[in-house]
């Protein structure tokens, strides 16, 4: 029984992390139909930025709890600088092209950013583990968990609820839905499509960086960390349905729980578990669990 409880807790913690890294990817795809491979680099930049900023904060001897603010500030900074730079500087010249072209363009951005990270931070690991231990530990199901892991669940729930509220309950969200359905008609009706694209891409970039910034205290920040993440995030988003917010949440939860179960009961299958879900979903529901009917203009 306690093992089952551990599976649920581990699964939900992992799912919340997966949701954090996948939600920005699905948001950008949902609105702009761009599969943003550079998402992985934005995640890594968020982690490096957080390690540097929080590291600086702590080295100055300021209040340790301020390091959480430093993590969030790093994510915002990375997203607000790099997001508009990519969207305004590059992507806007590519709109209307084939999805594959845009995928290749973001892949190029990914490679450039990976090298930029190496130029700025070098290849040595950065470690900023203080925020991870600061909140203490929680005993649960005969196991000890850092409170930070539960905070991650709260943050990813908050991000999900906030996004759902903005998309479905605000005027901007409704206008965005119009842009998603028909870009040209929305523009004809006086919607500033350009601004919505910029805002969406920047929001996606901030979310990617936030995922990285909140992961940084739990890992050693090393080159190449973005590569793993983009693969995982892509799998989660495909399972849930590209561009679907509840899809990303459900995809993350399924993958998280299944992976935790594999780790506890059949460790040899762990590597395979995510791709098993992905293969099954693609075989029986190729558009993903939550993607709506495809409407095509003929």
């Amino acid at each position: 029984m306690s093992a089952l409880l551990a599976v649920v807790v581990d699964g939900v913690i992992y799912a919340s992390w997966l949701f954090m890294i996948a939600v920005g990817l699905t948001l950008i795809y949902g609105v702009m139909k761009i599969l943003n491979i550079a998402h992985g680099s934005l995640y890594a930049l968020g982690a490096y930025g957080a390690a540097s900023l929080a590291g600086y904060w702590l080295s100055q001897g300021y209040a340790p709890f301020g390091s959480y603010a430093a993590l969030l500030a790093a994510a915002a900074l990375v997203g607000l600088i790099i997001g508009p730079l990519i969207e305004r500087g590059l992507l806007r010249f590519m709109y209307g092209r084939d999805e594959i072209i845009l995928l290749l363009v973001t892949y190029a951005v990914f490679l450039i950013l990976e090298d930029a990270i190496k130029l700025i931070w070098g290849v040595d690991p950065y470690i900023i583990s203080e925020p991870y231990g600061l909140l203490g530990i929680v005993e649960f199901a005969n196991l000890v968990y850092p409170t930070y892991s539960f905070m991650l669940i709260v943050v990813s729930l908050a991000v999900g609820v906030l996004l759902a509220w903005v998309l479905h309950r605000t005027r901007h969200g409704k206008l965005l839905a119009a842009v998603i359905h028909d870009r040209e008609v929305s523009q004809a009706m006086g919607v500033n499509v350009r601004r919505y694209y910029l805002a969406t891409f920047t929001a996606g970039a901030i979310l990617a960086a936030l995922g990285g910034a909140l992961t940084a205290p739990t890992v050693s920040v090393v080159p190449g960390m973005g590569v793993e993440v983009i693969v995982l995030a892509f799998a989660v988003v495909v399972i849930g349905g590209l561009g679907s917010l509840p899809g990303a949440a459900l995809g993350a939860l399924i993958v998280g729980l299944l992976r935790a179960a594999a780790v506890h009961y059949a460790p040899a299958l762990e590597l395979f578990s995510i791709y098993l879900v992905m293969a099954l979903v693609l075989a029986f529901r190729p558009q993903g669990l939550f993607a709506g009917e495809q409407v095509r203009t003929i």
Binding site: A3, I13, Y145, T215, M225, V227, E228, V263, H264
Partner: peptide
């Protein structure tokens, strides 16, 4: 008692650590 084999560069070992502890 258990042999965990997470993916290279996985980075997140929460479930594995739980399994090792239990």
């Amino acid at each position: 008692v258990t042999s965990q084999m997470p993916k290279f560069l996985a980075g997140q070992y929460g479930a594995e650590i739980s399994a090792l502890l239990t």
